[in-house]
Design a protein around this nucleic acid. Structure first.
Lengths: 144, 144
DNA sequence: TTGGCTGCAAAATATTTGCAGAACA
DNA sequence: TGTTCTGCAAATATTTTGCAGCCAA
């Protein structure tokens, strides 16, 4: 996304588009593997050596509040983030913990049973696949 | 599940069915809300005051390794556990963080796109719904 | 010049590990 | 008697918070 358009969107919501926020957003845009806070911190330190892990967390929270990024609850070890906010789904490799987007439309296949439709006001739904990716199967032993 | 049958299953896998393990398993069997390690620890201290949080974590791991319980990745704050291991799905209230089982069969509705079927050996899949339960909506303000 | 943002440090929370002694086969 | 398990304490990992100084509007 062009920088001036981004800036306007931020202004409208009362946020400032600081270099740190831009760097994190840009990194998430190009990184398909859905990094964790630590991944982002390590990657950004090359270009932005003064950045702190707290700023990464703060920024991820701010971007999430703005609706610019989404937290993915899929890895029991840590949170991951992605910048696509249209509803979609994910598959994770339980070896290398890389996550990929699945843009299939599952909405027809996921009917919430009546009992819960009465009990809950549903805000979102996601489908999560767990598996082992080919790279890890080749690297790993025959168990995988 | 009767205690002698449980014991045999544990023996067969080389585990001992200690009072602590039994207590945790029993608690998970009756607790429909899918407690976290801390929930379990607090609840069990009444009847078993010497239990330690480390034993809860150790036991949850052991039970998971045995295939007796399942870890639910749904709450970004902490892990939750349930004792039903047949594949099923979940809905969580993002206010009180209680989790409920959904036993609907979604297998027909969840076709993994070809690109991933070639790239991944899939081991499991789950559907996760997020929402607000009626109790929390009534308790909470009109925002919810 | 004021409010928001960063970086640092410390705190809070969640989970794991090492180890000595207890329990059990 | 040897192996496994527990409980404690410490360690580790993840995430959050407080605050002083900085920066942009």
């Amino acid at each position: 996304m062009p920088i001036d358009r981004l800036k306007k969107r931020y202004d409208r919501k009362g946020f400032k588009l600081t270099p740190q926020r831009l760097a994190i957003l840009r990194y998430l845009e190009k990184e398909k593997g859905h990094p964790s806070a630590e991944n982002i911190y390590m990657a950004l330190k090359k270009d932005c050596p003064t950045i702190s892990i707290a700023t990464v967390y703060n920024t991820l929270q701010a971007l999430q509040d703005m609706g610019e990024i989404r937290e993915i609850v899929i890895d029991p070890e840590r949170k991951h983030y992605c910048c696509r906010v249209e509803p979609h789904h994910h598959i994770i490799c339980t070896e290398c913990r890389k996550i990929y987007d699945i843009f299939a439309d599952y909405s027809q296949g996921l009917e919430l049973p009546d009992e819960f439709r009465k009990k809950f006001k549903v805000t979102s739904a996601q489908v999560v696949y767990y598996g082992i990716c080919n790279e890890c199967r080749e690297k790993g032993n025959e168990k995988l």
